[in-house]
Write a protein that binds this DNA or RNA. Structure first.
Lengths: 229, 229
DNA sequence: TACATTAATTGCACAGCGTACAGAAATTGG
DNA sequence: CCAATTTCTGTACGCTGTGCAATTAATGTA
């Protein structure tokens, strides 16, 4: 275990570390929402002057990237490579895990979608996804395309759900969110939007576990159709 | 045609109208990016003091909602209801149109994803989508679920593409974006991420028309599998 | 024509943001 | 003990959204 203590440098000691900065950011994300993840907010959380943060990260975008990386790093990739469970189930588990974790910090998904996801954890997730899709019988090219499709689907669904969460935390439970949607759908005029009104009950449940899993299953159906044999 | 001139009100005349505010916002969105869509920027664009904008909209979020509504209103819904073309083609046309328009104003999709899409144009789009999916042979419940799936897929894909566009406008052409991705993928270590490196060429093309259409086709495959008969 | 009423616009102000720059504080090697 | 080096702080600039009071412009009424 290379204890990488870079051989005792000269100069003042750091009050905190990069990880504590990220931790403070995530703490703010969870308690006061994405808007509270500011340089000044993080600094206050750490008991530092705002500028001190720039010792650890060059700018706010870098902090956000690190936060995203950390969030992606919490993913349980082992569940993806569990060869004893069917590949579709493994993807379902990963997708549900991501959804729960990202919706617990509403606004987190917006951070993900605010820049490229090219850190090591993002790469590891992609790699694991490619392995699962190889298990599913896809050749490398098809597997790559399918992996991107899955990421789009999962992050897209989470982003749309997060979009209608209220800004003050914490987010209401799903039942309440569905009830709110149902209430708002009651105001839709049936003459102009007949099919919308007819399906209002299903539409109200768009933000549910079931819809999320249903959509993922359709995507998996489409992907399975490209597997050889 | 009820010329709804609300019978000559008292008080100072308005310098502009709501639509001009929205138009100024979209102009800024296209020329200087999403960050430039600020109250002060819009006011400057209109030759007004910042506060004057609050005559037309209660706050910035309301302006953004109006912008989103306007962007959605530009969609050609007639193409969706063209009964002489196969339903999948109609959806492909709509999806491609949305992608081109939203990526022309990078950051626009982030505005879409920053709140509920419940305006009349959003409703009209949903209604048209339900009609197409009814043509495809889905019952109302399945059609509703499928419509949400499609919206998730389309907006998700656009959001992921927009996430890696550079902030200074205009956005580079697709070929250049793919080249950038390919370049960045050259730095990925093959020992740790073998499948990623193996499929690097496909991964570089994630931001292409082909990947977008391929993903949509897999979703449509999955949806078609739920049609009766 | 004068005035009062009403609406739109402005100026000013406040609190917040990211961050650049200079200097103070702290820690170490020589 | 000093000089070098690093971190942290104080201050400041320009930007943001937006509230409040005063000003400007248009109207209906007297």
């Amino acid at each position: 275990m290379a204890q990488d203590t870079p051989p005792a440098k000269r100069g003042r000691k750091r009050a905190v570390g990069e990880d504590e900065v990220v931790a403070a950011a995530i703490r703010l994300l969870g308690t006061r929402g994405a808007d509270a993840v500011s340089i000044r907010g993080i600094a206050a959380e750490l008991g530092l002057a705002p500028n001190a943060v720039y010792t650890y990260f060059p700018d706010r975008a870098a902090v956000v990237r690190a936060v995203v990386e950390h969030l992606l790093g919490e993913t349980d990739l082992a569940a993806l490579t569990a060869h004893d469970t069917p590949w579709r189930d493994r993807i379902h588990t990963l997708a549900a895990d991501l959804r729960h974790r990202l919706l617990a910090h509403p606004g987190a998904v917006n951070l993900l979608l605010s820049g490229r996801m090219d850190g090591p954890h993002a790469l590891a997730l992609g790699e694991a996804l490619l392995a699962v899709l190889a298990d599913a019988g896809l050749d490398p090219t098809q597997a790559a395309r399918a992996s991107y499709l899955l990421i789009v689907q999962v992050l897209g669904a989470i982003a749309l759900e997060a979009a209608e969460l209220p800004s003050p935390l914490p987010p209401p439970p799903i039942a309440e969110r569905v009830a709110t949607r149902r209430e708002q759908l009651r105001g839709v005029p049936a003459d102009r939007y007949p099919r919308t009104v007819e399906a209002a009950d299903t539409i109200a449940r768009f933000v549910s576990d079931e819809q999320y899993a249903w959509g993922l299953d359709r995507v998996l159906d489409g992907i399975a159709g490209r597997a050889k044999g």
